[in-house]
């Protein structure tokens, strides 16, 4: 019998440039997720919540809000990349690819692009490139993001 505290997330020292993380879980995005997210963030592009209108633009159903796609791809990456972060700094070269529809299942993976120290010894910046896929393995989104991450053992 043992009582163990199980830790999640990585520190600055844990990242190796070139390492590929295949992130956990995946997430099927439902119509409910999409309507809720679009309405509450007041995103008034009707292709996200009016099926007839979306179909008039040539889509087969409502389209999943691009910001929800981004947030799910990002969210799935957090435990591996940024659970120990001090701050998420920004987004670069973000591009949406295949249209995501309700019922599609999103998975996410990231490669470590670079690491650098900062003026403060207890933290560093790691840059990742994250890619999101649908259930057919088609790319739905990619972006790069720099994250300010704690060091496990900051120099004294």
């Amino acid at each position: 019998m043992a009582v163990r505290k199980i830790e999640h997330g990585h520190y600055f020292e844990d990242f190796e440039v070139g390492h590929l993380f295949k992130h956990h879980w995946g997430r099927t995005i439902t119509e409910g997720d999409n309507s809720f997210f679009s309405s509450v963030t007041m995103n008034f592009n009707p292709s996200y919540f009016n099926r007839e209108y979306a179909q008039s633009l040539g889509y087969k159903n409502v389209v999943v809000n691009h910001m929800l796609v981004m947030n799910v791809v990002f969210g799935l990456s957090v435990e591996d990349l940024s659970e120990r972060a001090i701050a998420h700094l920004g987004y670069e070269k973000m591009k949406w690819h295949e249209t995501v529809y309700p019922g599609d299942t999103i998975t996410s993976e990231s490669i470590v692009l670079s690491k650098r120290d900062t003026s403060r010894p207890d933290r560093g910046v790691v840059k990742f490139r994250t890619t999101g896929y649908n259930q057919r393995g088609e790319k739905v989104l990619e972006y790069e993001r720099p994250v300010l991450i704690r060091k496990r053992n900051p120099p004294a």
Partner: peptide, 18 residues
């Protein structure tokens, strides 16, 4: 969104975000 993308077909790219 109401002023910039109510008539959008898709969000395409974002860059230099901070």
């Amino acid at each position: 969104s109401e002023d910039t993308s109510e008539n959008a077909i898709a969000e395409v790219e974002m860059d230099n975000g901070k």
